[in-house]
Write a protein that binds this DNA or RNA. Structure first.
Length: 268
DNA sequence: GGACCATGTCTAC
DNA sequence: TAGACCTGGTCCC
């Protein structure tokens, strides 16, 4: 269940295992059989990510485009690969390693032109070294809530429900505030923080957002591990006390997703 | 074994 | 905004 940091990590993982090497490609599940046959035996030349989209590059300007969606997973293993499960959409393998893709929203072949079109409809990505200027132009003109804007991939590519909730908490911003009511200073701080948090997410392969001074050890409280593997302030902590003010963390539906925030620390 | 939920996105109404 | 879609983990019977 991936946000942008996971996809950038996966791009790097593909490059380190398969970059410059010929790979066998198969689709045990069958839904990508034609695509797999076309790249089978080809050299993986590059791998890159933009937001939550992963692109694996093969000769002849041919790309495998992968979007994991909510359920998709990519798992790596060491050769020899075991018989694949029936749900594996795509298996890439060489003599050293294999990668199994399951449950993606998208796994398709693209031309260069197709790929450019995807980049064009995505907003700037903090993990691609983009600056926040283009995003600010949209945010500062929008009546939509900052919570909705952060999840809009045309505005910012790569942010998902966890980073949205956490970055707004870290900056004390009410998720329902309209984008056009943010100050430039607030937006710049959010953008810079996203870049820092997401880079750390790539490095650690998990989302941690709690500042050192707010860890349980620093605050003299019992240790805790949030059930998605990282340390967070509000994500999926509904009804629990806020680490900072002790008030109750709240949740609400916003555009078919769960929004989490602390009304005490993020006043409207 | 079944219901339900999830870090996502698209489409139809 | 509701429903669809792709999978797997957890909880409850």
């Amino acid at each position: 269940m991936p946000e942008g940091h996971t996809i950038h990590r996966l791009a790097a993982d593909h490059l380190s295992r398969f970059g410059g090497r010929a790979v066998r490609a198969t689709s045990p599940q069958g839904k990508f059989a034609d695509g797999a046959a076309l790249v089978d035996g080809q050299v993986m030349e590059t791998a890159e990510a933009h937001g939550k989209h992963l692109f694996l590059g093969f000769p002849g300007s041919t790309w495998i485009h992968i979007h994991l969606g909510l359920f998709g997973k990519l798992g790596f293993g060491t050769a020899p690969a075991p018989p694949p499960a029936e749900t594996v959409r795509l298996r890439l393998a060489d003599t050293e390693a294999y990668a199994d893709l399951r449950g993606p929203t998208t796994c398709a072949l693209l031309t260069d032109g197709d790929k450019r079109a995807i980049h064009a409809r995505l907003g700037p990505d903090p993990l691609r070294g983009d600056d926040g200027e283009r995003a600010w132009r949209r945010v500062s003109r929008s009546r939509s809530s900052v919570a909705a804007l952060l999840m809009d991939q045309k505005v910012v590519a790569g942010v998902g429900n966890v980073y949205r909730a956490e970055v707004l908490f870290r900056h004390g911003i009410d998720p329902y505030r309209a984008g056009r009511d943010l100050t430039r200073t607030e937006w710049d701080a959010i953008w810079a923080d996203l870049a820092t948090l997401m880079r750390e997410g790539v490095r650690n392969n998990r989302i941690d957002t709690v500042r050192p001074e707010h860890t349980p050890e620093a605050m003299g409280r019992p240790p805790r591990v949030d059930d998605h593997g990282g340390e967070v302030y509000v994500y999926r902590r509904t009804g629990m006390p806020c680490h900072i003010c002790g008030g109750e963390v709240r949740t609400a539906g916003l555009a078919a997703r769960n929004l989490f925030w602390c009304p005490g620390c993020q006043p409207g």
